[in-house]
């Protein structure tokens, strides 16, 4: 009984080895290619995050200037009005 059990065990293990041994694997060069690609994707993600921040800062600066410009136009009209009264 014990013998047949051990035999089955060995047979199973051999089959598993055969199965994995037949599967093709990427070469070291291909693995490096994959790693380089992952690094490139990470770098691009960081770059995009930085650009998003830059875009947000620019949009804020533009909004501030637009508000200042609107105030300046109001001030100009006010000054013209006051000068008429002087």
């Amino acid at each position: 009984m014990k013998k047949s059990f051990a035999g089955l065990f060995v047979a199973g293990a051999l089959l598993a080895m055969m199965a994995t041994g037949c599967t093709s694997k990427p070469s070291p060069a291909e693995l490096k290619q994959l790693e380089d690609l992952k690094a490139e994707v990470s770098s691009l993600q960081r770059e995009i995050a930085a650009k998003e921040s830059e875009k947000a800062a620019l949009m804020k600066a533009i909004a501030d200037k637009a508000a200042q410009l609107a105030q300046c136009e109001k001030d100009k009209a006010l000054v013209q009005e006051r000068l008429k009264g002087m």
């Binding site: 199973g12 293990a13 598993a16 080895m17 994995t20 990427p26 693995l31």
Partner: peptide, 15 residues
């Protein structure tokens, strides 16, 4: 031992 080695081999990336 055979099982362990076959399992380890299965964990590696396939093509």
């Amino acid at each position: 031992a055979l099982y362990v080695s076959s399992y380890a081999a299965a964990q590696e990336m396939t093509k």
